[in-house]
Amino acid sequence: MIEALLQTLLNGAASGGVYALVALGYTLIFSVLGVINFAQGALFSLGGYLTYLFLGGKIGVNGALPGWGLPVGLPFWLALLVAALGSGAVGLLVERIAFAPLRRRGAEPLLSLITSLGAGVVLVNLLQLLMGAEGYAFPQGAAGLAHLPESLLIGGARIRTIQVLLLAISALAVAGLSLWLENSRSGKAMRAVAEDATTATLLGINSVAVVRLAFLLSGMLAGLGGGLIGMSVSLAGPYFGISYGLKGLAVLVLGGLGSVPGAIVGGLVMGLAEALIPAEASGWRDALAFAILFAVLVLRPSGLLGRRQLEKV
């Protein structure tokens, strides 16, 4: 009985950690701009593919250049880092093309839902042209786990070693991000812009730079997430990031839009709720996330940890 409970907790934490990572990417951008970047899912895919390529993986037969690969074979940690930077750079590009022109013209923020989605469609389809639609898996032992057992037994509950690792890295990334937001100069600037962009500008904070930083960081988070998921499972075609993106959206709202701890708690709650579904009802799992979201929105519109706030007029 206790074993089953522990197993459920572990399962919930394992998937919840990933959800939190995805939701955090949205959160950073939402907190400074008040909009949602629908290209986030595509950046997630991109991170996975970049990690694969930097590990020395070759393009499959359905890609544009079959058999081609980068002339490097980086160790996993480095590949993950480079891929995260790459996704961050593309995140910046998305800001440049899909967000900045609209902001300059003072257009409705709603428009960026569409432009960012367009950026995502372009990105996913370019990935597909380049890499083909086949699934890719990272080389075995790429993460240097070859000498560890495939799964760990913790108090009678079983979890794959790679997922423990994934959870640890996500936790580190999240903790690092929180500390940085809390203590660094640019982190404080970002929080100031999130609080009130106009006042922040009056105080001499360069809000354009802060927005770019937010896109860079959230692109990096997406890239990191994609690379880690690629390690844990595999890259199930260029669309694989999109479903994570959708789930992340639910987590984002569940935790409270724009709240960093909210995204983490929301992710864990979501992971746990899914782990609790009995097998007979497992078909309804994807509805559960949204049913919870729906209930939370209706009962407590500011999310689990969001601030109750009046609409800015």
Partner: peptide
């Protein structure tokens, strides 16, 4: 002894597998 439903887009099966393996 166990019937688990998954989705095509799933790639993490920790939940259904541990449930079935019990």
């Amino acid at each position: 002894v166990s019937i688990q439903r998954t989705q095509l887009a799933d790639n993490d099966f920790q939940n259904p597998i541990t449930a079935a393996l019990q």
